[in-house]
Design a protein around this nucleic acid. Sequence first.
DNA 1: TGAAATTCTATTTATTTAGTAGGATTAATT
DNA 2: AATTAATCCTACTAAATAAATAGAATTTCA
Lengths: 147, 147
Amino acid sequence: MFLSTRVRYGVRALIELGMNYQKQSVLLKDISKRQNLSLKYLDHIFMQLKTKGIIKKIKAKKGGYLLAKPPEKITLYEIIEAIEGVRRIECLDDENICSRSSHCGARIVWKRLNAKVDEVLKNITLKDFIRESKKFEQMDESVVFSV
Amino acid sequence: MFLSTRVRYGVRALIELGMNYQKQSVLLKDISKRQNLSLKYLDHIFMQLKTKGIIKKIKAKKGGYLLAKPPEKITLYEIIEAIEGVRRIECLDDENICSRSSHCGARIVWKRLNAKVDEVLKNITLKDFIRESKKFEQMDESVVFSV
DNA sequence: TGAAATTCTATTTATTTAGTAGGATTAATT
DNA sequence: AATTAATCCTACTAAATAAATAGAATTTCA
Ligand code: FES
Ligand code: FES
């Protein structure tokens, strides 16, 4: 499974919002600095996440972004769909692409494959990413304390 | 899950070989005609499938291709790997791509995701494609007989 | 030896992805 | 009310990848 850099950057940024869920909003500028990602590129990505209702903005000075819903309600499927669209084999949705689509055995299997992969993507949520990230955060703290 | 046209054409061609498994070899030219695919393009694809040991060639006049092993032993994972390589997020295999890879929560989840998707791909074999294709073949025959 | 098949390398074209630029808009703060 | 620091939006460029084509070399059956 290959994921575009857009999706990967998007997830890294969403993790930051998730870590602050129900605390304060996060500035794109800060994410860009901390994660060392282009502000302008993140800008695009966030525009799409907002349109799809995954994040909310606070526009103006001291603004920033917030998650629009709890991390466990944001699936990876949803994030991918928002950022790059879930690209599909054309003849799955449109019968008219392939002349023989009504008699194509491959098509049946492609449908089954997509259903399974979609299920995997829907069972991973932002919460999973945050849980793993917090583990590292704790590790870092314990290192500091033991010095 | 998006699959390149190369993989889809490859599978369609492999189905044809599979339908003739342990009968006679199949000519690329005939596949190209029946499936309406460019001969030269199939040429590339078959070269890779051959290198990876999925098919065998019979070179020369009246030559053609054969499956190198039974359809149920040829997984979709294997086909994709042969034709387009299993493209992965770079930092999964190489720790040095991202500076923070040893402390990245996302990376853990990406690994888990890849393992699950790979499993799905390994559980689909050419046999599945052939089974579905044969269903249509039978349907066609029954239509012919009923006329 | 000729014909019909695969083999191989190189090139071209189209599409998608990644990234940049610059200004418009919004609203909190002064 | 002006300033300012943020998001918003449109357009563009560059790089990478995918799709397709071209042409000649090689193999071996008949
Ligand atoms: S229907 Fe499109 S490839 Fe079979
Ligand atoms: S290690 Fe590469 S994005 Fe986290």
